[in-house]
């Protein structure tokens, strides 16, 4: 038991990482500052805005409400892990692009990960289900309509197993 930095080993987007973290370092800060994965954004830093949403073992979590030491041994997916390869977009990202579901883009990584979890659990949700599911993510630009449209578009194009 100590407050000194300790080694944290975890898997992010299929790749194994190891870095040191003080117990008080949040997973979000760890991803950004220690692993250089700055796609995970920090808005409020107290679990309200959803910008830092990532998947841990396939489930969406607020990365600002987890300490990096708690992610030891777990598998994470961040926005960097959504696209099949560099220069390409996932079907969900493509739908965000086409439907103009982002303006400043700050909230987008969180929306993408939340929506990815929804489509994994329920490939063809209703509009109401999309709205309820995304209620934990705040956007200050788009007014949400285009985000909902994008998720529904991605759903309509979705084949089993795609993300």
């Amino acid at each position: 038991m100590s407050r000194e930095p300790r080694e944290v080993v975890l898997t992010v987007n299929g790749r194994r990482y190891s870095a040191r973290a003080e117990p008080r370092t949040t997973l979000a800060d760890f991803l950004r500052d220690s692993l250089g994965l700055t796609g995970t954004h920090l808005g409020c830093e107290h679990g309200v805005c959803g910008a830092c949403t990532v998947l841990m073992d396939g489930r969406s979590v607020r990365a600002c409400l987890l300490f990096a030491v708690q992610a030891e041994g777990h598998e994470l997916t961040t926005v960097e892990g959504l696209a099949p390869e560099d220069g390409q977009l996932s079907s969900l990202q493509q739908a965000f692009h086409e439907k103009h579901a982002l303006q400043c883009g700050f909230c987008t990584p969180g929306f993408l990960l939340s929506a990815a979890e929804l489509l994994d659990l329920k490939p063809h949700p209703t509009e109401d289900e999309v709205r309820a599911w995304l209620s934990g993510n705040l956007c200050r630009c788009t007014g949400y309509q285009n985000i909902v449209d994008a998720v529904l578009l991605a759903s309509s194009r979705r084949e089993e197993g795609a993300r």
């Binding site: 949403t53 489930r59 607020r62 987890l66 599911w133 934990g136």
Partner: peptide
């Protein structure tokens, strides 16, 4: 809360 809150 929301899905991410209920997951945790």
């Amino acid at each position: 809360g929301h899905p991410a809150i209920r997951n945790r």
